[in-house]
Design a protein around this nucleic acid. Structure first.
Ligand SMILES: [Mn+2]
Ligand SMILES: [Mn+2]
Ligand SMILES: [Zn+2]
Ligand SMILES: [Zn+2]
Lengths: 115, 115
DNA sequence: TTGTTATTGCATCTCAGTTGCATTACTTTT
DNA sequence: AAAAGTAATGCAACTGAGATGCAATAACAA
């Protein structure tokens, strides 16, 4: 039910929105827990938006090119919507450091708001 | 006084830490406001850490190669410390989108914690 | 001095996210 | 079917970073 809100697209949904959308049918806490469970099950993944809110999106398994394993996200500064960007970003190598993951968020104007 | 806590390095300091460090000499709210002012003055810049906390670091003006204008940051998952990474990351171009800025955070183990 | 503006303190608020505990739903075992 | 165990949900209260309103103080200028 919560999962079907993501309708197979790359659109992300903020937890705040989801809590609102389901406030008549389920408790706030339940929404949080369902999302966490779906993430553990590999159905969803999460990231942090520009306003430090938590967002979720469908998990798309990496394609053959290894793309999208740890992909960036885009958030529109006009409409606030955000989505997955299935693109590979080259991770720099830092001397004496080990990079395990990355949080990549691009901010700008989305196609809708540019049109 | 708050500014001198950054001692010209690329080390970042979380607001939470700064509030604690100065709790005897100034109010929590004042710390927030001083940091905001220093950011407006171009002395500091801020970013969001992996735990959604706000971090500040010295602002280093871009060098001739345009490097570090919108640079990534690194946060160690062991010690929690984070710092600026003066490296250029290629921003992808997304069809029908305009990217204005980016939040790039790399997570891993720092030199100290690897040693 | 007197008026004006910038800075700080303090209390209170906001609000996303978490936690504890009781209740209900679902499964498995006898 | 009944009992027992496990998982999912509701509800209330809590947490904590960050914001806000307002009064008090400090700096500054006329
Ligand atoms: Mn994604
Ligand atoms: Mn930086
Ligand atoms: Zn938009
Ligand atoms: Zn470390």
């Amino acid at each position: 039910m919560v999962l079907s809100a993501f309708e197979n697209s790359r659109r992300a949904l903020s937890v705040v929105d989801l809590v609102k959308r389901f406030e008549t049918e389920m408790n706030k806490t339940t929404v949080y827990r369902v999302l966490e469970r779906l993430q553990d099950d590999g159905e969803l993944h999460s990231f942090t938006g520009k306003d430090r809110l938590k967002w979720f999106a469908k998990y798309h398994k990496p394609d053959s090119n290894n793309t999208t394993m740890t992909h960036p996200h885009f958030q529109c500064q006009d409409c606030g919507k955000s989505k997955c960007i299935p693109v590979d970003i080259a991770i720099p190598s830092l001397p004496n450091h080990r990079i395990d993951s990355s949080h990549l968020l691009f901010i700008g104007q989305c196609d809708d708001c540019l049109a």
